[in-house]
Amino acid sequence: MKVCAMREVVKRYKKVVALDHFNFEIKEGEIVGLLGPNGSGKSTAINCLLGLLAFDEGEVEVFGRRVSPDDMDMKRRIGFVPQDLSFFAELSVIDNIRYFAGLYEQNNAKRDEMVREAIAFVGLEKYGKFAAKKLSGGLKRRLNIACGIAHRPEFVMFDEPTVAVDAQSRNFILEGIKEMNRNGSTVLYTTHYLDEAQELCDRIVIMDEGRNMASGTLEELIDLVDPTEAVHLVLSEPSETVLKMIADMPGVVDVAEDDGKAVILLTPPGHHLSTLLEELKKHEIYYSSLHSELPSLNDVFLKLTGKALRD
């Protein structure tokens, strides 16, 4: 079942096109990553899904219904963790989470249970009575998340929740999101960090300049580009003859020399490394070190957009 869908959505800010006939959808139970550089339209897409932003063309649906800012039923089922820290800085951690949970649940006992769970979920047990403004950057991020997920939403949207977060908090956040997903929540996660998308997401949508460049599982995306595995080999006695011998080995599509190293491209990736090693032994070609690189999202991104993701 589709949790949300955007079809041919166009959003312009005066002359700038933020979403350019953007299409994508999320199925129930998925963690979908919206991956793109800053300014690629990720937050705009989320704001359209949330019904905050008016768009010029296209259709946006959540839970099978067209998005409307007045649809309270839809709002009860979704959760949103914005990129900016959005809570009441003067209030304590507990007061903040209690307030946001109270917007969804009126039963005090149930609400307090939600608050306890959310605090435990983000690991803020020790800071419950701290004023939000006194927390460190990473802890503020955790509170920002707790306020968005306390009501146990079916569908949660995270807009770059780990920006400017230390490694410990970041891992905590990512583990938490996986846990939520295991508990049944569907997740939309925007980021410009490749490793996060690779680690977390079942499916990734690559965005650039407001367009959906490609989408699929990590493997599907890698298959979209010319997939090769690069093996860097420091040869003991490099020579033209040796390189020629390597080029004739099974699975090798190209060999090049780079400052005493042989760079060997194998295809398909992940299948021929052991064969290559056996062949090198058989032909008595000796090497001092070997390093293998499988294709990554960055290669996919580079191929699709012509630029590295951090540009």
Partner: peptide, 16 residues
């Protein structure tokens, strides 16, 4: 008012 502050944008996504 969602266009005035991030907090307002967040609150606008809740059934408030």
């Amino acid at each position: 008012q969602a266009n005035l502050s991030p907090l307002a944008a967040r609150l606008s996504t809740t059934p408030i």
